[in-house]
Design a protein around this nucleic acid. Structure first.
Lengths: 245, 245
DNA sequence: AGCTCTGGCTTGTTTGTACAAGTTCGCCTA
DNA sequence: TAGGCGAACTTGTACAAACAAGCCAGAGCT
């Protein structure tokens, strides 16, 4: 772990622990540098990390202030349902309902940077939290990763983790589109809700470290089961609105 | 504008223009430093900015790669419906349907860091895109900003901009919770949809530069009208899932 | 009392240097 | 030809120094 990550971690712990309340001032960079025996640049990297997490804010000339005291999760916890669930103290389970190879559609070809008609693997999964079905996942994997996905246990808990362990695949970047849709008949049946009831939809494309697309997915959460949360600031703003579809 | 912002802007333009395709490699830091006549540290700040926007990704040892070519918008465009709409080429309008001062609820007190029972201003607005109603906004303003809000034109297009111009208020930090809910009877009537139909809900708390909470809001978008989009990576991840409510 | 202004403090930007760590690709060998 | 090895390249981390720009409180003035 890098020095600046250690410092960030230490400060984050202090904030989460309540040493610094919301609205309180953090020590100055010079003071932190002296305390940790590090250069000011290193301290700046540390607080930049906290700022990116939305824990602290800053303005030129004034001390940094604490904006929040909740720890935000890692990329893995956003991407992987199972890892997120575990970190929140839930028991996640899931079942593969269907899995088939087929030629990709033009839309999928564009999303996954494939040639039109290239073979992909389409998987339908139902995910549960503490036994309750909360998520219908319709995932399309690029052909080159399909064999590894097919080797997975149908009841495999964390696909992300299994793929990392079996073939070293790392999900590194993702683009996510979030909106609300009405439950279709299949959604309704699987999630145990009425047809037309509101679902939170997350469509995503994920790529590996090299920027090669791995999978695209349409995930639908039962209303009330899951909420997405983001913090933003004038300096860091990842979430944007988009016109419908 | 700082040097690193100029460089970032120049690179972003090149990416958006298509000089670098998705998956292509960016020049090395040393090369960029030479090209712009800047130190490597400055170039690193520039590309860090692009990485935060999700345009480029990087791994130690390998050239940076282009992940996307779409420009993501600024904080203001996430926060301000009107500014976002304008940047997307839509015509935004809105109407204040009701506005009343009242003591705050315990929940509101906690969100806005107020004393229980302190006075707040509750405003109900209907927002339209190109004349079509798409958003019901139920906003609660902290008492100290209420007078400035009440002075606004009821049909005021951009509240954010007006408040900045009239009292210099800047919305600097925000926390947003996104989920799906069924339309209530009031929502349904205002948006022209059936009761129970899916809406995309965004609840937020916004604070000014000093970390002082300004407003909290419950915004409900008609399904299909607006989609939230975020890019994330292993290094930068602002969006997280949360258990329901 | 209320106001202005200034000096010290704090964060923002930039440059330069050095080394660590991971990737890539060509060369050499088995 | 296939695989291993290593050199060159590229990004990551850390330190040091200097100046710019904005904030704030206290001194001094009206």
């Amino acid at each position: 772990m890098a020095r600046y990550e250690q410092i960030a971690s230490d400060l984050r712990d202090a904030i989460v622990r309540g040493d610094y309340r919301i609205g309180a001032q953090l020590p100055s960079e010079a003071e932190l540098a002296a305390r940790y025996g590090a250069a000011r640049g290193t301290v700046r990297q540390a607080v930049a990390l906290l700022a990116a997490e939305g824990l602290v804010g800053s303005r030129q000339g004034a001390r940094r202030i604490v904006l929040g005291t909740e720890r935000s999760q890692s990329f893995a916890e956003l991407h992987s349902f199972a890892q997120w669930a575990r970190s929140m103290g839930y028991r996640a389970s899931g079942t593969v309902l269907s899995s088939e190879r087929r030629p990709c559609s033009p839309v999928e070809a564009a999303r996954l940077s494939l040639e039109p008609g290239e073979e992909v693997l389409a998987v339908l999964r139902l995910r549960r939290l503490d036994g309750e079905p909360v998520l219908v996942e319709r995932t399309v994997y690029a052909g080159w990763i399909a064999p590894a996905v097919e080797r997975l246990d149908p009841d495999c808990e964390s696909v992300t983790q299994e793929l990392y362990e079996s073939v070293g695949l790392v999900f590194a970047y993702g683009e996510h589109l979030i909106d609300a849709v009405a439950a279709g008949s299949e959604d309704a049946r699987l999630l145990g809700v009425r047809r037309g009831s509101p679902l939170l939809r997350q469509r995503r494309v994920t790529t590996n470290q090299e920027g090669r697309p791995v999978e695209t997915s349409d995930d639908r959460y039962r209303a009330g089961s899951v909420t997405f949360s983001i913090r933003n600031s004038t300096s860091a703003n990842p979430l944007v609105r988009r016109a419908g579809d």
